[in-house]
Amino acid sequence: MENKKVWLVTGASKGLGLTLVTKLLAAGYRVAATSRNREALIRETGGPTSGFLPLQVDLVDEGSVRDAVAETLRHFGTIDVVVNNAGYGQVGTLEEMSDEEIRKNFDVNVFGLVNVIRHVMPHLRTRRSGHLFNIASIGGYFAGFPGWGSYCATKFAVVGLTESLAAEAGPFGVRATVVYPGYFRTQFLEEGSLTVSARQMAEYEEVRAIQHQHQTAINGNQPGDPEKAAEVLIQVAEAPQPPVHLFLGQDAYDMVEVKDTALHRDLEAWRKAATATAFPQENPVAS
């Protein structure tokens, strides 16, 4: 076991995080796992052992994150792989949602993730190795889902942060991968993981229909198997050249193609006008 990597996984009491932690422990990896509710985490995974450290962490509280990273290092002596998995869905049109609802979504999905990065990087940078996985969503690449603007915006932010992190951390031997899962059969669309805006306007009939579809027809019928997703993450963590961008699920790949086709169409339609925006080239002075 001492030769196995140490993983730190946030949002580990349910969903992909719980599945990943369970697989890691079964394979003999050492794991520190966080949740807002430590007792709920222990109920799902068991109590602390020499190879498992369950932690109660408020990711929005930087002091809580700092203490969790320090406790992980005291317990295991090192951290090799970090999985920023914690987050939640927010449904509501941009007109309906309050400032408080959107900011809370960003606090957890983006700033909580940055808090973890900020406090693990000194260790990873000093030892000149490590790997960070930031779990985004296919909604961080393709945002054509009415009513999911806030959530998609948080995941687009995670993508941008990860691309920059990969460039910043690379010289220190630290890798970063942003993960874009499609629809996986977890509790993501259930109460507790999905929040609906308090204000719901009758004018947005299409959004209400999409919201209802996600909470009923799609929930429990997602095509993706979280067990297989966890296996891919473990495989990538052991790869000598891991990707910066990792899309998970056939549906994720399909949506990439839809987005890329639309993007290419817009590029070509406006190429002539959009590229004729430079200052006129000055003629060289004759000698």
Results as ranks from 00 to 15, higher is better:
residue 179 V to N: 01
residue 279 F to L: 10
residue 282 E to L: 14
residue 46 G to V: 14
residue 25 L to H: 14
residue 254 D to V: 05
residue 152 C to D: 10
residue 133 F to I: 10
residue 175 R to C: 13
residue 170 G to K: 14
residue 4 K to R: 14
residue 273 A to I: 08
residue 171 P to K: 02
residue 53 L to N: 07
residue 172 F to V: 00
residue 262 A to W: 09
residue 218 I to G: 02
residue 276 A to S: 11
residue 190 E to M: 09
residue 27 A to W: 05
residue 204 Y to R: 01
residue 150 S to M: 03
residue 1 M to T: 13
residue 242 P to N: 00
residue 170 G to L: 02
residue 263 L to D: 15
residue 234 I to W: 07
residue 35 S to T: 07
residue 66 R to W: 08
residue 235 Q to V: 01
residue 81 V to S: 06
residue 137 S to A: 02
residue 174 V to K: 04
residue 231 E to S: 13
residue 267 L to S: 10
residue 123 H to N: 13
residue 72 T to C: 08
residue 240 P to F: 07
residue 182 G to N: 02
residue 234 I to S: 05
residue 147 G to Y: 04
residue 230 A to R: 02
residue 144 G to A: 08
residue 136 A to W: 11
residue 269 A to S: 08
residue 178 V to Q: 05
residue 147 G to W: 08
residue 26 A to P: 01
residue 280 P to V: 10
residue 34 T to V: 04
residue 158 V to C: 11
residue 269 A to I: 11
residue 45 T to W: 03
residue 269 A to E: 15
residue 29 Y to P: 06
residue 123 H to I: 04
residue 278 A to M: 07
residue 208 R to F: 02
residue 139 G to S: 08
residue 284 P to S: 09
residue 105 N to Y: 00
residue 286 A to T: 15
residue 108 V to N: 01
residue 263 L to C: 13
residue 42 I to S: 14
residue 109 N to Y: 08
residue 268 E to H: 12
residue 140 G to A: 02
residue 266 D to H: 05
residue 262 A to Q: 14
residue 75 H to V: 12
residue 187 Q to P: 12
